[in-house]
Design a protein around this nucleic acid. Structure first.
Lengths: 233, 233
DNA sequence: ACCTGAACACCGTTCAAGT
DNA sequence: ACCTGAACACCGTTCAAGT
């Protein structure tokens, strides 16, 4: 009966409302806090009510990825393939930076949803109209992998550097066992003194690898590369 | 008292035995079936007994990655950097194919463990002794990303193709909305008719991208590339 | 001092009972 | 026919009671 009062003043539940609430919850509280029960609570609804609009949690996550994919800028026309691909992927990256949980969820999907296919189809199209063979396009897409979505697997993200003293001490200890890693860590630490603000580096690394791959694709295209002259067994 | 009889005929629990049992359980039953409770049961022990050797589940997973990292072939000496890196990474890939759960677990780690650092240190060392600057080595490692561990993010793994009829029907439906994707799917389906067995393709894609990146690194090294001439803000 | 059973605070999802 | 509360079968981990 109190339920009826609530019903009156809240919009009826719909798949779209469920998905948007899920995205908002993941944005605010993190993906680990996204449970069917908490989402239901957020929507002022009994948990089982969600199952009317979403078959199970997996399908909820599928839907969330679809929402995210819809936020990527539409493809640009009348520019050469490399700019078009780069622009689109960097747009995807901006979307993912707004939704930090999305990369992990995308990774865990097992089958693509419509908006995902739309996005991938448009990128494949850019290669094809740019003069790439079906074959080379196929391998290029695989080589890009998750980079298509604007993220690369950042393994063991840079430790949040504590005070400089601590940092120097750790570096010294590191150098004893892992001299080569320490060498890089030292160079990075030095760079950070001159460059203000973080987050810039990740972007640089992303674009570095992206450009390396795009340049590689272009070179193969120019040389008329095909996979048929490669052995496979 | 029955407990004492068990104690007599089973080796005492140790961190190493816990980790090996966890790896075996993940290999056999999948990572989703690996719970502290099931692992304890497998070891014929009460769940809380595990917490003597491992602080929590995260540390258990860290330890499992360490075990895996130890299975990678030791680095080769006296060969040029590219062969050395390629050989080591392809060895890591063979390890990961033996432990299909490992890539997902590696991705989820937030801080590296000793065996992980050893492995990364040795690869960094290969670049450095191969004539790469600290700077370029750093960016190359980032560009490789999870490829260092022998896997690439395979988004939406190839659907297990049902009977050929079904396949043709799906392809036709796909072509209507996603023509470019359908074009690739058709080419791949055609290839699979001639090439027997699957799994070969994934290996090909992996090596294709790896070689593209290694070639790209070499080119930058030869041209004396540095990041200082790049803008970053 | 050590070990461990019961308990806590959660999950996703099923299902039967209520309207 | 629809909706939903209680229940089921799990989690990882805490903690106090027992030896």
């Amino acid at each position: 009966m109190a339920q009826q009062v609530d019903d009156a003043r809240r919009p009826p539940l719909s798949r779209d409302r469920v998905l948007r609430a899920a995205v908002a919850l993941a944005d605010d509280a993190g993906i680990d806090s996204l449970s069917m029960r908490k989402l239901a609570q957020e929507l002022d609804v009994v948990p089982m009510a969600l199952y009317k609009h979403v078959a199970n949690k997996e399908q909820l996550l599928d839907g969330m990825v679809d929402v995210i994919a819809g936020e990527i800028d539409p493809p640009a026309h009348d520019i050469e393939w490399k700019s078009a691909v780069r622009q689109r992927i960097l747009s995807a990256r901006r979307v993912l930076l707004r939704h930090p949980w999305a990369s992990r969820v995308i990774e865990s999907r097992t089958s693509p949803t419509p908006a995902v296919l739309d996005y991938m189809n448009s990128i494949v199209g850019m290669f094809r109209t740019g003069g790439f063979s079906v074959d080379l396009t196929h391998h290029a897409m695989h080589a890009l992998g998750s980079r298509i979505w604007g993220f690369s697997q950042e393994l063991f993200p840079a430790s949040p550097s504590p005070d400089p003293e601590m940092q120097a001490a750790m570096l010294h200890q590191l150098a004893a066992r892992y001299p080569y890693i320490a060498e890089i860590a030292a160079a990075v630490a030095h760079d950070e003194e001159s460059v203000v603000g973080s987050g810039c580096d990740d972007q640089f690394e992303f674009e570095f690898a992206l450009e390396l791959l795009l340049d590689g694709f272009e070179r193969l295209r120019q040389h008329g590369w095909t996979s048929t002259n490669q052995s496979c067994a």
